[in-house]
Design a protein around this nucleic acid. Structure first.
Length: 816
RNA sequence: GCGGGCGUGGCGGAACUGGUAGACGCGCCGGGUUUAGGUCCCGGUGCUCGCGAGAGCAUGGGGGUUCGAGUCCCUCCGCCCGCACCA
């Protein structure tokens, strides 16, 4: 063995310099006929330094990018930063450091580390979402959505985080608490900007079927959109001359409605109770309900509360008068903010009726007890429907309602419009002004970007910190030139991340967000990679943007991410890494100690990439040992064969040569399948380990050309995971640049064996094994198997009832 | 409550359509190289019984289908994730 040591830092910096100087990973927009592949990992939020999750996600993406390149595709693999957002702003509030400065420092650290990891990025397309050259187009796109009526303003009860002093989208409220700081969220009424994502509910739902996404993510999106088919039915209140429509998925149970409930926020609640003996009680109840936290109100297991309004409404199907109540289990945001209550067939209505002594009526047969939510024949309803299955009755009842003008088919969604305004500093300014005379006026395209002004105080005080920048706020109306005020809200950072992948296609464009031709070339993203925590928000918003832009003629794809892969977390000692637990380890520690190739290979080798995996320092050592072995083998073979010459194949290899060649081709096939068919990087690396082990075991017994081929193959196969080490070994052996070599193809003829191992079972238990030609006939195999001494021992004195022969595999004797 | 996933040696994990359970790595045991330690190289290593050939038991528990089940079906237990009064 040579006394050379594997020195990853020298090797890695050498190849990184080559790639940087030769701009190896840059790709132009000029099509050259090769199939394109857009490989994208979710862009990082630059805060502090990259962590293990970053190492994992970019190691995965890079492996895929390399594999796609070497299998003949033109690969776009860009990088950028989701640079606006709360952590940088909170840091500014604490320290006074401008978010721009802390963000720049963090970005520099990410850039340094990505380079030290050797990730194959086209750096010419890099940008941060906080740069004016980038958010100029975020604003431009906002205005296009505004023109189409897809961005609008309305006053709404919003989720307000009293700690962060900002409102939150529904998606950012977790169990009634702020997603970021954990504070309990309150309700507030504010004028807010929304995107009309609900217009796209059906398309967002329907197009899920065409996506190659993990099924749990598809299910989560489907549930989030929450499409329900049913009917809208009008209940009238003749005293006040108002009709109250309700949405129901169960119009078949209309005859079982025994009361009617309105949400506390319903605009007619106070009017209905006015003048009744319940007026004061209703007012108290509503005030209490509205100020209560969404957390407490949302709990499904909480006791039902409510008060009667002292009014009745008429059930359109039977003319019955049923009492109206107000109760907080009815939500204003869903349906019409009022429901018909059918306690016999709905658990919530049943609980309410039981608590307040309201009548409970069965109108669908089946089930032992009420409430019964299942199917069955209609009973106690109307002669026209009684006896029908409830499903048939449902259609007939809706038809009847429709003909009589009392209702119609209807669809409701759980999905709400996307609230995008934030009373925050570090975000993209919303490019509109408010003019006393003209109202809301968009800033003209040629005045973009509306630059984020500098302020002294970042702390929110119930309004955006931008409101303090008076010189900036006071402006002229673009329409009438009168005095006007700038919008001081900034955009949710999800707006930035909903289109960044389009900008990569044409990142340098300063006359348009993108050239449609450039986007046509690269979109959709062929493989998107990211954390499952973005399964709903980011992925749904990005899909909405792409559909909206497609409708405007800006794009010709309808879906941004053709395939999605979600990665599992890296834990330590079984727990999520966090500062408070003190169990954080950083990638740089390991890159410095073992080199980037070891760190990258290890995060892939640790287990299936979509599962959580626990970090182990001993495991890192093992991977480092493997790369060292591969490298030393390369040195040894290069020295003994005289280096820099690809050796020709052996003619008619035999014995150990044949065995090692077979192992090499077996590894090629295995790694190729693991890369192409699935994301089994762990077993792919294991296969290369097997090949290297085989090289060591057989290196004394094979011809130099055989060993040379096997080692070069190992280098070639490890390249997507450990590019520096792979390139180095391959270069030593052949003088060629590995990334320019096509991915190896297995010689399947060589893999065909002239004997296969046959397993012999007796009653399903393995008793012996022997070798036979794969073409051996069943009778022959059975006879051979029967002759094996270890088999006869188990057959003696017993009846062979049946013999199963699977040619090329096994013989099973069934005995009694 | 509803929806989805998972459960395999001392540990991380392999096992593609039912057909040799435990690839690969860690750890451990033994041998070699070395003045020694480390490195490195070779071999062994699921559990129980047995000197041994070997036998029995093993993929969370129980049951089933099958010549044959980690894999399919039923059931129970445990853990994880998502949604959670959406009418």
């Amino acid at each position: 063995m040579t006394d050379h040591r594997y020195e990853p830092h020298q090797i890695e910096s050498r190849w990184q310099t080559v790639w940087e100087q030769e701009r190896t990973w840059e790709v132009s927009n000029g099509a050259d006929g090769a199939t394109k592949s857009y490989v994208l990992e979710m862009l990082p939020y630059p805060s502090g330094e990259p962590h293990m999750g970053h190492l994992k996600i970019y190691s995965i993406g890079d492996a895929i990018a390399h594999f796609h390149r070497r299998t003949g595709r033109r690969v776009l693999h860009p990088m950028g930063y989701d640079a606006f957002g709360l952590p940088a702003e909170n840091h500014a509030i604490r320290t006074g450091e401008h978010p721009r400065d802390s963000t720049a420092a963090s970005i520099a650290s990410f850039q340094r580390q990505f380079r030290s990891w050797g990730i194959s990025i086209d750096w010419t397309r890099e940008f941060g979402t906080h740069e004016p050259r980038s958010y100029r187009w975020t604003q431009w796109l906002f205005l296009r959505l505004y023109e189409r009526g897809l961005a609008y303003r309305k006053e709404a009860a919003v989720n307000w985080c009293p700690n962060d002093q900002t409102e939150l989208a529904n998606e950012q409220v977790i169990d009634g608490h702020c997603e970021r700081c954990g504070f309990e969220v309150e309700a507030r009424q504010l004028e807010q900007w929304f995107f009309r994502i609900t217009d796209y509910a059906d398309r967002l739902l329907d197009d899920l079927t065409a996506l190659d996404w993990p099924s749990n993510v598809v299910t989560m999106q489907r549930n989030w959109i929450g499409r329900s088919e049913g009917a809208e039915v009008s209940f009238s209140c003749p005293e006040l001359g108002i009709d109250f429509p309700v949405f129901t998925t169960r119009p078949d149970t209309l005859f079982g409605a025994t009361f009617f409930v309105m949400a506390p926020e319903h605009p007619d609640v106070l009017r209905l109770s006015a003048g009744t003996e319940h007026e004061a009680a209703v007012r108290d109840y509503v005030n209490h309900a509205i100020t209560e936290s969404t957390d407490a109100r949302g709990a499904a297991d909480r006791d039902k509360t409510g008060v009667p309004l002292g009014r009745t409404v008429i059930n359109p199907v039977n003319g019955e008068r049923i009492p109206v109540w107000v109760a907080d289990y009815v939500l204003m945001e869903y349906g019409t903010g009022a429901i018909m209550a059918v306690p016999g067939h709905d658990e919530r209505d049943f609980d309410f009726a039981t608590k307040f002594g309201l009548p409970i009526k069965r109108v669908v047969g089946g089930g032992e007890e009420l409430p019964y939510p299942g199917d069955g024949p209609i009973v106690h309803s109307h002669p026209d429907f009684d006896g029908l299955s409830n499903r048939d009755a449902l259609d007939k009842i809706v038809d009847w309602l429709d003909q009589n003008g009392r209702g119609h088919r209807s669809i409701n969604y759980r999905l709400r419009d996307w609230l995008l305004s934030r009373q925050r500093y570090w975000g993209c300014p919303i490019p509109v002004v408010h003019c006393e005379r003209c109202g809301t006026v968009p800033v003209p395209d040629d005045e973009l970007p509306v630059l984020l002004p500098d302020v002294r105080d970042y702390a929110p005080k119930g309004r955006s910190p931008l409101a303090a920048a008076e010189d900036w706020v006071n402006t002229r109306c673009p329409r009438c030139d009168g005095p006007a005020l700038r919008e001081t809200d900034t955009m949710d950072t999800f707006v930035d991340s909903s289109w960044y992948f389009l900008r990569y296609c044409d990142a340098g464009n300063d006359t348009a967000a993108w050239d449609p031709e450039a986007v046509r070339q690269w979109m959709p993203v062929d493989q998107y990679i990211g954390g499952v925590e973005h399964a709903i928000l980011h992925l749904l918003y990005a899909r909405f943007f792409v559909k909206a832009f497609a409708d405007m003629g800006l794009l010709d794809v309808e879906e941004p991410f053709k395939a999605l892969f979600t990665i599992g977390m890296i834990t330590r000692d079984g727990a999520k890494m966090s500062k408070s637990k003190g169990n954080v380890i950083s990638p740089s520690t390991y890159v410095e100690r073992y080199g980037a190739d070891t760190a990258r290979c290890y995060v892939l080798f640790i287990g299936p990439p979509d599962q959580d995996a626990d970090w182990s320092d001993d495991g890192v050592e093992g991977v480092h040992r493997f790369l060292s072995r591969l490298w030393r083998l390369g040195e040894e073979v290069a020295e003994s064969t005289g280096q820099t010459a690809p050796l020709g194949p052996l003619e008619a290899p035999q014995g150990e040569d044949l065995e090692l060649l077979r192992k090499a081709h077996w590894a090629i096939e295995k790694v190729t399948n693991d890369m192409a068919g699935r994301f089994a990087f762990n077993t792919a690396i294991a296969a290369v380990m097997e090949l290297v082990n085989e090289c060591y075991r057989r290196r004394e017994g094979v011809q130099p050309a055989t060993l040379h081929f096997a080692v070069a193959t190992a280098a070639s196969l490890i390249f997507p995971f450990a590019p520096h080490c792979g390139a180095e070994v391959y270069d030593r052996l052949t003088g060629e640049r590995l990334w320019e070599q096509p991915w190896p193809a297995p010689d399947l003829d060589l893999l065909e064996r002239d004997v296969t191992e046959i397993v012999v079972q007796v009653n399903g238990k393995v008793r012996d094994r022997f070798e036979a030609p794969p073409t051996a006939a069943r009778e022959e195999l059975e006879a051979d198997a029967r002759r094996r001494p270890r088999v006869t021992a188990h057959l003696d004195g017993k009846d062979v009832v049946k013999v199963i022969v699977v040619p090329g595999k096994l013989v099973n004797f069934v005995v009694r």
